[in-house]
């Protein structure tokens, strides 16, 4: 079995340790004997996104994000929407999350269009949300129902009718600091503000993504379990640490 991962803009959108998500997907698949191929896709390329099992889209700085936004809309938009509608697994973090939405409204009120693959809207907020986050997820993850991470964003994201939240905020701000929701789920596409990076300390979520990604091409796949002692210890420590810092 082979897992084909597309890494979107690895050269431009790789702030905040996002590379750790790729390492985690790669390792957790390899440890189970699953071959992994990572295909970087950047500016100027227009691949068929339906050919990938999993697409990872990280966060970037404002300068890079502007470059990426233009390229996404002109070269990648329709194929990316088709792939998401077709059930390709997508993990989009922070900037990537915002860019997959309908638009980003600047402080001046201008609406910069996004890909429009996710029914979410983001507007600029005053002040950044920075800190540890714990959410309780509604996904059937098995094991711990919590997810942990670190957020650092000034955008406030609001979900539309077609998307569900990734989880409810226990510690931190989440999508917008108001409705107590974090991230979004639409079909097999997942958007989130959680860095940390998100996957190493949430191995149940990493496995959920790998399992979904493989099942689309190979029929229902069951992943053998791994020795996750260190991962779960880090997860628990991060939950405890976040609670301690914020109370």
């Amino acid at each position: 079995m082979k897992l084909i991962i597309c890494h979107l803009y690895p050269d431009l959108m790789n702030t905040y340790g996002d590379r750790g998500n790729m390492i985690t997907l790669y390792k957790r698949a390899s440890w189970r004997g699953i071959e992994v191929e990572v295909i970087p896709v950047s500016i100027g390329e227009g691949p068929d996104f339906g050919a990938f099992d999993l697409i990872f889209f990280g966060g970037g700085q404002d300068k890079e994000q502007r470059l990426v936004c233009q390229d996404l809309i002109t070269l990648k938009r329709s194929s990316l929407i088709d792939a998401i509608e077709d059930g390709v697994v997508v993990l989009a973090v922070c900037g990537g999350y915002q860019l997959l939405g309908e638009y980003y409204r600047t402080p001046g009120g201008e609406e910069l269009p996004g890909v429009g693959a996710l029914d979410i809207r983001t507007e600029a907020g005053s002040g950044r949300f920075i800190g540890n986050v714990v959410i309780e997820s509604q996904l059937p993850l098995g094991g711990a129902p919590t997810m942990v991470g670190f957020e650092n964003h000034s955008g406030r994201t609001y979900l539309g009718d077609k998307t569900r939240p990734l989880g409810r905020v226990i510690v931190g701000h989440g999508n917008n600091g108001r409705d107590g929701l974090e991230g979004c789920v639409y079909k097999n596409a997942f958007g989130t503000y959680l860095h940390g990076p998100i996957l190493p300390k949430n191995p149940h979520f990493a496995d959920y993504l790998i399992q979904k990604a493989l099942s689309r091409r190979h029929g229902e796949v069951k992943l053998p379990s791994l020795d996750d002692g260190m991962e779960l210890r880090a997860h628990k420590a991060a939950v405890a640490h976040a609670r301690k810092c914020c109370h």
Binding site: G20, T24, P200, M230, E231, R233, A234, A237, A238, H241
Partner: peptide, 12 residues
């Protein structure tokens, strides 16, 4: 304070 984080990084 984040010993578990660095341990996990080293494992990966």
């Amino acid at each position: 304070t984040r010993a578990e984080d660095i341990a996990l990084r080293l494992k990966y």
